Simulated assay, not measured.
Amino acid sequence: MEDTNPEEASVPPEATTRDARLALFKRVKRTFVPIRKTFVQAERGKECRHAPLKDFIVKRNRRGLDAYLMTLASYADDGQPTRLHSAAWARLIGIPESTKSPGTAVTRTFEWLEARSLLTVDRARGSQYISVSLLREDGSGEPYSRPKGASEGERFLKLPHAFWEKGFDQKVDLPGLAMLLTVAREKPWKDFPAEKAPDWYGWSADTTERGLQQILNLGLVEREETFRSEPLSPLGYTRVHKYDLVDWMRPAPGKNPGAAA
């Protein structure tokens, strides 16, 4: 009997979003997605600290955020655009096969991102292949380069591939993902007062509270309770909750974003 290739089958295998994402991670040979912190919040000293992440949250565009994260994940160190068939993009983004026109949904998603100066899209007339080139995460329209962390504008957070590999992308909603990125942006054990969120990030206090509670319930972050002296308050103190990512969600420092897994 002839040996059978385990990757071959007598019927076509089911193509899933999870399989597409895992194949992408294997191809880029990294263990995390580096994202400039200015995607979540603008640099200190800016008149407004709001950053591109705000638009995804207030417009409730989870599909757009998934598409952007996958585009960041796909970046090749040679700087070339990521070119995939529209059906493969739809799978990566998580557009259901039951969608009436997946290709149109992909195009509209990328057009939304392009309008916010986060990437550029090229698609030859009549072609089903779409090439996507990243722009800088702060929405400035400047060309993208892998962040190095040498200055405040170059500092980056790390979203580990394990977040997708363990299936948490399917469990977390948009407020949860927003706050996961926000916690990842900060140093360990930071508090996130909900009433400050509209000024600091551009989304509501309710979004902050719901997002933090969800990622705490999912075990993506840990929380500790401390107290701050407030002599003129009713109790004389204020209860403060501080958050940190669990160990596996915070990859070890010092690793080059382009280093092989």
Rank of each mutant, 00 (worst) to 15 (best):
K29N: 15
K29Q: 15
R30I: 05
R30H: 07
R30V: 10
T31Y: 07
T31V: 05
T31P: 05
F32C: 10
F32T: 09
V33G: 12
V33L: 11
I35E: 07
I35N: 06
I35F: 06
R36Q: 14
R36A: 00
R36W: 01
K37R: 15
T38G: 03
T38N: 09
T38W: 03
F39D: 07
F39L: 05
F39C: 04
V40K: 04
Q41E: 15
Q41M: 13
E43A: 15
E43T: 13
E43S: 14
E43Q: 10
R44M: 09
R44A: 11
K46S: 13
E47D: 07
E47N: 08
C48I: 10
C48Y: 06
C48A: 08
R49I: 03
H50L: 02
H50N: 06
H50S: 00
A51G: 02
A51S: 05
A51R: 03
P52L: 01
K54C: 02
K54P: 00
K54M: 05
D55H: 01
D55M: 00
I57P: 00
I57V: 12
V58W: 03
K59S: 12
K59C: 00
R60S: 07
N61F: 00
N61V: 00
N61R: 14
G64Q: 00
G64N: 01
G64V: 04
G64M: 02
Y68E: 01
Y68K: 02
Y68S: 01
Y68R: 01
L69H: 06
L69N: 12
M70T: 06
M70R: 04
T71F: 11
T71C: 11
T71V: 10
L72W: 11
A73D: 10
A73L: 06
A73M: 06
S74N: 11
S74H: 09
S74M: 09
Y75A: 14
Y75H: 15
A76M: 05
A76N: 13
A76H: 14
D77N: 12
D77F: 15
D78H: 13
G79E: 02
P81S: 13
P81W: 14
T82L: 04
R83V: 13
L84N: 07
L84A: 03
L84K: 14
H85G: 10
S86M: 08
S86Q: 09
A87C: 09
A87N: 14
A87Y: 02
A90R: 05
A90W: 08
R91P: 04
R91T: 12
L92Q: 13
L92G: 09
I93C: 07
I93E: 05
I93G: 05
I95R: 10
I95H: 07
P96L: 14
E97C: 08
E97Q: 15
S98I: 12
S98Q: 14
T99K: 15
K100S: 06
K100I: 04
K100H: 08
S101F: 12
S101D: 15
P102N: 11
P102M: 09
G103W: 11
G103A: 08
G103Q: 12
T104C: 05
T104W: 06
A105C: 06
A105L: 08
V106H: 02
T107V: 09
T107W: 11
R108I: 01
T109S: 02
T109V: 03
T109F: 01
T109D: 01
T109M: 01
